[in-house]
Design a binder for these strands. Structure first.
Length: 101
DNA sequence: GCCGTGACTACGC
DNA sequence: GGCGTAGCCACGG
């Protein structure tokens, strides 16, 4: 994979349990500020068997950027980690946002 | 190389 | 947090 993808992957992989981060932050912390859309694209094209905790990544509004079945699964995993997520997939960024370190 | 599209963000209301 | 709008970057057709 190219360097960008590698940086993003490792960054996402570092998100601690019980925390979440936004696409913009992931990109910024990985050294690519402004590449939030590419992060989203990367997540969208992840292989099915990936071990990456991409479900800990939400959008700038603190909501899971997904709907339907994938949203449910993503929400369940977060709830299991102690993150309060509403049925709509909303959560308190103020409380769960990862600071990148 | 232009154009539409997307699991986005920032800004204003 | 929600809606509309503009700007953003990369990919597929």
């Amino acid at each position: 994979m190219d360097d960008f993808a590698g940086q993003i992957y490792s960054q996402v992989h570092q998100i601690p349990l019980g925390k979440v981060s936004t696409y913009g932050d992931i990109a910024k912390f990985a050294g690519y500020p402004g590449y939030h859309r590419q992060v989203g694209r990367l997540m969208a094209t992840l292989p099915e068997g990936t071990t990456l905790p991409w479900y800990r990544v939400v959008n700038a509004k603190g909501m899971i950027s997904q709907q339907g079945d994938d949203l449910v699964r993503q929400r369940q995993r977060l709830l299991a980690e102690g993150v309060e997520v509403s049925e709509a997939g909303k959560l308190s960024l103020k409380t769960y946002r990862w600071d990148g370190r």
